[in-house]
Design a protein around this nucleic acid. Structure first.
Lengths: 182, 182
DNA sequence: CGCCACATGTAAAAAGTTACATGATTAG
DNA sequence: CTAATCATGTAACTTTTTACATGTGGCG
């Protein structure tokens, strides 16, 4: 999957592994993230497959940067992947729910502490997403008029992030209440 | 993670790999799933670590079954894991959002078809969760009075599943509308 | 002086998926 | 006769995570 994300970004413009990591952290991290080690190795692997090419640029007083450029073969792979529609709902893996599922024997105080911490974490995430929303509307749209249509799709994924966090926060509040009165 | 789920179930009663797979599919699958291959290998691995023991029971006209029983060491591992509170929100990996993020250049008809299929899939999931909720209330609570407290925690995780699907469905409806009028 | 940003990698381990492999019974 | 349920496993592969590894320049 990380392969397609990298190709997706490179399809806009040539980028380095470092920049791709940043782009992911800033935009797709709330539905897909990756460590830099995976990004660098996947880029090299894709270069071997002829999906991208790279060139090393030297900089004064800063480390060299390896810029990757998507190739027609890479664009085709991306396109093919997008064209073969998903026929399943993606599975969820949510640590907290696993923990909660087996928490009946735990000290309720500890469970509540954990849920309250999650409450704060998810509120922070929500706040961050809302800020990104503002950012997209105010800055990005003006700076890159060519990506106006793209931005509408990015916005949809951000909306999901926002709704998800809102739902999560409401559920945490409700769960905390229920455990308190158990 | 699958390790703790298996220990969590075995902490209630001895079970076979097959039964554990069933238990996971029926209860935790909406926040954590596993293939049978992973379950069987993890059980064997835990046996090697002394967290569980197993014995082979022969059956007439049915295959042998290997029943796993949790050991004190396994209970300790489970307890320790539950006691060390998560300090982060679990990351999300949602294929559909990755696809949507890079879908500006795709044929909108195709995107809509994909979203409408997801709409049906998530509606089916929601219906299934609601049915499970009924099941828990009506049958399970009466059959296992010793797990009454546990059931209240199970119920909380199911609630999340329900709220998640409701949110997802609403977001899909809204996204479909937006793309239709794009 | 210490931390952050810049910048790229490798290695090893853990986790998860897919495919291969077998075989009896029972219900439709 | 065909599909599903019961029942367990291995092997190969892919993906992801964690740790190791290095080095400069700027800011407070």
């Amino acid at each position: 999957m990380i392969k397609y994300i990298l190709l997706g970004f490179l399809n806009y413009q040539p980028m380095t592994g470092y920049q791709l990591k940043q782009a992911i952290d800033e935009s797709t991290a709330h539905f897909w993230h990756a460590h830099h080690s995976q990004i660098y190795t996947t880029l090299r692997q894709m270069e071997g497959e002829g999906l991208v090419t790279s060139e090393l640029l030297q900089q004064e007083s800063l480390p060299d940067r390896r810029v990757y450029t998507i190739q027609p073969a890479g664009q085709q792979v991306l396109k093919d992947w997008l064209n073969q529609t998903q026929t399943e709902a993606s599975p969820i893996k949510e640590d907290l729910l696993v923990r909660l599922f087996f928490s009946a024997q735990r000290d309720p105080i500890q469970v509540l502490t954990e849920l309250r911490l999650q409450f704060e974490l998810h509120q922070a995430k929500l706040a961050a997403y809302l800020a990104i929303g503002e950012h997209i509307v105010n800055e990005y749209a003006k700076a890159n008029p060519a990506w106006k249509r793209d931005q509408q799709f990015w916005r949809l994924t951000l909306d999901m992030g926002i709704h998800y966090e809102e739902m999560y926060i409401a559920w945490l509040q409700n769960s905390i209440k229920k455990i308190e009165t158990l």
